[in-house]
């Protein structure tokens, strides 16, 4: 084990997987010589050459489509999309290509590519560089969407994503890259996709979150503990396919749920979580599910304005108290 930053954990995963499988290559804007805007691919071009680490033109649409078809024809591409806000440019390749052909041509082809991107706000990047569009992606059948929060999961899940036979969207958060944590050095430590994690165990209320919102949920749990409320924080880790049994188990214990996502509220990922809980845990619920999400408006720039829209620990704690009242 070693203490690593989140970005370093990702870098280690990329280096290990590219080293073990010549079919793996990576492309994206500024990822090569520069090492990526968030330095995730630092040093990889020197190690693996310009053929397997490619700087690309600003062509998200075609890049994503090319990742899909390259994956269909024997390679395992990793595409970095610099900001999650650019995901709408990638949509046809995901919605009309990867999703469709994974089903239509099942048995003939596999589509093992990873699309890495990062979203989230909090540092004044403004309305076009701070969004969390998790739900746009999690809506698509046949595409896995993961959003780990710890460096250990970042490494283990990126490795699992690269080895997965299906398309995987790997969602990072700009505020997580510098967080530190213990990470396995061993090459074969994978964290399975589709499995949630109990970040904090509790009996009074379940808080479901992913990515940076897990950090906020954990802070909320500490606030709630001062009031004698035992909050259970479930780090979903994978947004699709969702670990339903973990959700059911937690709600069977706490009977209360707060669902958190940094994206918009209306038709948001929180809405899906809420409906899923309603579908599968209705009789276990002792109160309506509370959603904590971004207000339904663009993200403003100025610090007090931006702070007002991004879900945080106190909003989560407040929602928990309201749910338990």
């Amino acid at each position: 084990m070693a203490i690593m930053r989140y970005a370093e954990a990702l870098n280690a995963a990329l280096r290990e997987e590219m080293g073990r499988d010549p079919r793996v290559f990576m492309f994206g804007e500024d990822i090569g010589r520069y090492g990526g805007v968030f330095k995730v691919s630092r040093g990889l071009m020197d190690e693996f050459g310009e053929g397997r680490i490619r700087d690309t033109p600003i062509s998200e649409q075609a890049l994503t489509a090319m990742a899909v078809s390259a994956a269909m024809t024997g390679t395992r591409p990793i595409l970095e999309i610099m900001y999650a806000d650019f995901v709408p440019l990638c949509m046809d390749a995901l919605v009309n290509q990867a999703s469709v052909f994974g089903y239509l041509w099942e048995g003939q082809i596999e589509i093992p590519f990873v699309l890495r991107t990062q979203g989230g706000g909090g540092v004044g990047t403004g309305a076009q560089h701070a969004k969390s569009l998790d739900v746009f992606l999690a809506h698509i059948p046949g595409i896995k969407v993961v959003a780990p929060v710890t460096p250990a999961d970042a490494k283990g899940m990126l490795k699992a994503a690269i080895r997965d036979p299906q398309p995987v969207i790997f969602l990072e958060h700009k505020l997580l890259y510098n967080t530190r944590g213990e990470v396995a050095n061993e090459e074969d430590v994978l964290v399975p996709l589709g499995k949630a994690r109990v970040a904090i165990s509790g009996t009074d209320i379940s808080i479901f979150a992913s990515s940076k919102m897990v950090v906020e949920a954990e802070a909320a749990a500490k606030l709630l503990a001062k009031d004698g409320i035992g909050a259970e924080v479930i780090d979903l880790r994978t947004l699709r396919p969702l670990d339903l049994s973990a959700i059911k188990a937690s709600i069977a214990k706490t009977h209360h749920a707060v669902v958190v996502n940094e994206g918009w509220n209306f038709c948001g990922y929180v809405s899906e979580l809420s409906a899923t809980i309603m579908d599968h845990c209705f009789d276990d619920l002792d109160a309506p599910v509370s959603r904590v999400a971004m207000p339904d408006m663009p993200i403003p720039y100025s610090e007090p304005l931006e702070a007002a829209v991004i879900p945080n620990a106190s909003r989560i704690a407040e929602a928990a108290r309201r749910t338990l009242a």
């Binding site: 075609a62 269909m72 052909f101 041509w105």
Partner: peptide, 23 residues
């Protein structure tokens, strides 16, 4: 691989296959 009913989608698809061939 294959037919595609999103007009234009075959163009990057072939480019991606060629990228795979090149890699």
């Amino acid at each position: 691989i294959g037919g595609n009913a999103i007009v234009g989608a075959g163009i990057p698809a072939a480019a991606g296959m060629a990228l795979s061939i090149q890699v």
